[in-house]
Design a protein around this nucleic acid. Structure first.
Lengths: 339, 339
DNA sequence: CCTGGCACTCGGCCGCAGTGAGTGCCAAGT
DNA sequence: ACTTGGCACTCACTGCGGCCGAGTGCCAGG
């Protein structure tokens, strides 16, 4: 019970601080939340909480603010996930339903998420590793340049410009196309590499060098996908939590432009079915040490299609943000994966 | 000559202010630039320039800063376009050459431009209206959902999710595919709409409703392209010119997330062959009244493929920025359009 | 038309004291 | 063993007054 009240105090501090963005003092706490004890008692609890590292004071004779550790505890033990209202769910659904293609789905999701949470939203494009090849198209762009387009049955489209060592014309392109399609159509992407490898040997000799570079490109686009694409929206929201990190804003924006960094943050949440929260230094990105990342995967089945999440100040409304992220992920997952 | 010197003074003011970001006074001006006259004379000139609206003082007893009109005059009459060094040109070229597909070209361009100019860079994806259809692919995603992918000979790929009223299977998709391809392959996009319109009538009756929705989608993706895509990078650079518009930063970021706004800004420059500069209120966007936009089209021939440019504080190094924008546009144009 | 001199303005930068929210500690109460 | 009221103390923040100096406008003389 003593322990219980302390946690209650911590929760109150987090909630108040999230709202006001000002260090919260013992008196205000005892009043606003009906804890049933006097400010003095609260002070003792705060003292203990500070001792344990959950809260800290910006300077002597100021109120307390939560530390990383404090937020962590709050998220882990003190907050549920606010359920969204029926109206909100409907809004999400109707907003996403208007999407006309994959790109549109992703862009709508990311905008939606940014608007809902009033944070920076990030959505990974669905990954393709578990789909299979539907069709491959080869187009000549110039005397020595071709474009390869691969369509998968999940609706993903991969394209690749190829520079050929030997001249190519439409006829050659046609042959390449049919060769590739015969070999690959219907194949799962995971199996594709080995099938592709045998291709050049079976072709007409004069086609071989060309086909070789082509298959090389196919392989690349299958395997080397360190930078699957992602979409971002709501960077303007960073200025909302203005004064906090007015100075670090620059470095945060820079970090957010690094695809690799974001992929790691968002992608890592993708395999777990739940919403994960990384607070402050837990992000492992120095520029984001004053921020928190709330992310989850979307898409049914054992492997998620991709991840999505938001980046915001540590001082954020976690229950609500987690709920929003989860809800959007759910709908996007249904939209893309279900059928 | 009197007139000449006044302009010289204006140029000096702009140049100094761009460097220092502080109001520039008569004494410093007379010293740093060898105008051959005394500060007092410079003061008279400044007085006249202020009268004419080219410069202003933030408060009495402070130096002068250029007005919108002053920057305008500077750009129009006082600044050439700094040529880039050979090394810089090489750097641009080699950076762009590594691109593997259209997407990559655009993303590399935008990053490059952002890095070179240290501003926010924006690049429009190449428009497709002047290209022709190479291949159309139809994929089933679910019992009532299909994906249509259209590949053009410029390497552009358009995709579209289609919800069918009637159930579809792979066989139907195949028929649709061949019907669309027979009719459209090789057609110029501009001609496509009328060809498409006649399609449903020629098909098997049970296919018609389905084909109709499909052709509707094709038409949409051809005609209704108000929001051709664009890429952006370097938003972190906005914080560089920090104090200037720390408060307006928010609204600037918001404006930059509005695709429509950006398209207008960047797209309008696209038809002219030269680099255009919009300063302050000339942007016609209230949130951008403290910024300037430098943009141009890329791609050879009478119609540009798209536009690109940068958004930065009015206080920017125009000669250099214009040179950088022009150079990147030139290389991208060659990369995409030449062959 | 240029120039040196001169009075004037006014934003920015101290230093200062006053204020008040908030803390820590202690002794008394339950 | 907790809780509580009281009390002294700390320290960020604010407003005020005065100083400083860059920069201006004007004028009379070259």
């Amino acid at each position: 019970m003593l322990e219980d009240r302390r946690l209650e105090v911590l929760r109150a501090i987090v909630e108040d601080f999230v709202l006001s963005n000002e260090p919260v003092g013992s008196k205000a706490l005892a009043e606003r939340h009906n804890l049933g004890v006097s400010p003095a008692t609260v002070r003792n609890d705060m003292s203990a909480l500070e001792e344990e590292g959950y809260i800290t004071q910006p300077h002597t004779s100021a109120g307390r603010i939560p530390t990383d550790k404090g937020y962590r505890l709050f998220v882990d033990r003190l907050s549920g996930v606010k359920p969204l209202s029926r109206a909100e769910r409907r809004a999400i659904q109707s907003f996403l339903e208007g999407a006309v293609d994959l790109d549109d789905v992703v862009r709508r999701s990311v905008r939606l998420l940014a608007q809902l949470t009033r944070q920076v939203a990030v959505v990974q494009y669905p990954s393709l590793s578990s789909s299979s090849v539907r069709h491959i198209e080869v187009v000549t762009l110039g005397p020595r340049r071709m474009l390869m387009v691969m369509i998968t049955d999940t609706g993903r489209v991969e394209q690749r410009i190829i520079d050929s060592l030997t001249p190519v014309d439409d006829e050659i392109a046609g042959e390449l196309r049919s060769a590739l399609n015969c070999a690959l159509a219907g194949q799962r992407l995971a199996d594709a590499p080995e099938v592709v490898a045998t291709l050049p040997d079976q072709a007409r000799p004069e086609l071989r060098p060309c086909l070789a570079t082509m298959t090389g490109a196919v392989l690349e686009s299958l395997v080397e996908r360190p930078e699957e694409r992602l979409a971002m929206a709501g960077t303007a929201n960073l200025t909302r939590a203005s004064v906090d990190f007015a100075d670090s804003l620059r470095s945060i924006l820079e970090a957010l432009e690094e695809q690799v960094v974001l992929m790691k943050l968002i992608g890592s949440a993708r395999e777990t079915g739940t919403v994960t929260v990384r607070i402050g230094r837990e992000t492992d990105v120095d520029a984001l040490r004053t921020t928190a990342v709330v992310a989850t995967g979307y898409g049914r089945g054992p492997f998620a299609l991709g991840g999505m999440g938001v980046v915001g100040p540590m001082r954020m409304d976690y229950p609500w943000t987690m709920a929003a992220v989860r809800a959007v992920a759910k709908y996007v997952g249904e939209l893309l994966g279900a059928d």
